[in-house]
């Protein structure tokens, strides 16, 4: 069962770097993160990598394995042939700090710009009543482990640094959808999603959904319903008038 694998790991920092070749032992049942840890313990003690739970629950160990955005702790070695070179590189959309560690602060800044849950007025703690069918839709989005693989994959920002300003990304779209579908949230978030967070820039390629390790249907269950309802809201003549007048300078 034990064999020696060929690994190619990107090493470097914000000033530059490149792929480094390693030959490293692999045992039955191991995942890519185990192999990275073995490299640390035996060949490259200062190899930088993030991880916590090693069970796909914390979303720390995101990287690109043979070019595919993956959690390293959930990528089993038996998905590769023994003679296959396994290439591990940092997430491409975010600036490298060192080796496999990137600066993901973009996501925290965007999260801060989304207005928080607005509790219903006059309902005391302990008196919240909601039906399971109604919370279920938002619960799907709350499964998000913030691995940011969807953010990393989305072509709107993957190679377009200039779009980062206006585009919050799929992780934030499900957060908006989650709040919008929360049975007791007292804010309307649809127009805001379009105007302040760049929902309109998404052209529904579904790449985000494909990489989500939590299998959240980001596009079908969050983005598309939000887009459809944004349309409804915007073309409601009264709302339309209201929002336009409200925005006119001087009024």
């Amino acid at each position: 069962m034990t064999y020696t694998a060929k690994f190619r790991v990107w090493r470097g920092d914000d000033t530059g770097g490149g792929l480094v070749d390693f030959a490293v032992e692999v045992n039955e049942g191991e995942v890519v993160l185990d192999i990275i840890h073995r490299l640390q313990a035996t060949q490259a003690p200062d190899l930088a990598v993030r991880w916590n739970c090693k069970a796909g629950k914390c979303g720390s160990c995101s990287a690109e394995v043979n070019g595919l955005p993956r959690l390293m702790c959930m990528t089993r070695m038996n998905t590769f042939a023994e003679d296959e070179v396994v290439t591990v590189t940092p997430l491409r959309t975010f600036p490298v700090i060192r080796d496999l560690v990137t600066n993901v602060s973009f996501n925290y800044i965007k999260a801060r710009q989304i207005p928080a849950f607005a509790p219903p007025a006059g309902v005391a703690p302990g008196d919240y009543r909601m039906q399971q069918v109604d919370v279920q839709r938002s619960q799907e989005f709350r499964k998000c482990i913030e691995c940011f693989l969807c953010q990393n994959t989305c072509h709107v920002i993957r190679d377009h640094e200039e779009n980062k300003e206006a585009f919050a990304g799929p992780r934030m779209f499900i957060r908006l959808a989650e709040l919008d579908m929360h049975p007791l949230d007292s804010k309307d978030r649809k127009v805001e999603a379009q105007e302040d967070h760049g929902l309109g820039m998404c052209n529904i390629t579904k790449c985000c959904t494909e990489v989500c390790p939590e299998h959240i249907k980001i596009t079908d269950n969050a983005i598309i319903p939000m887009k459809e309802r944004v349309v409804d809201v915007k073309y409601d003549p009264l709302r339309w008038l209201g929002s336009k007048i409200g925005k006119r300078p001087g009024l």
């Binding site: 703690p125 919240y128 009543r129 909601m130 039906q131 399971q132 919370v135 709350r142 929360h182």
Partner: peptide, 24 residues
């Protein structure tokens, strides 16, 4: 403990529900 859990709902937590809509 109960007050501390109920308070989480006012922060936006979504626990699984009982049939009558309370926290399961």
């Amino acid at each position: 403990a109960p007050q501390r859990v109920w308070e989480l709902e006012t922060y936006g937590a979504l626990f699984d529900r009982t049939k009558d809509g309370k926290i399961s």
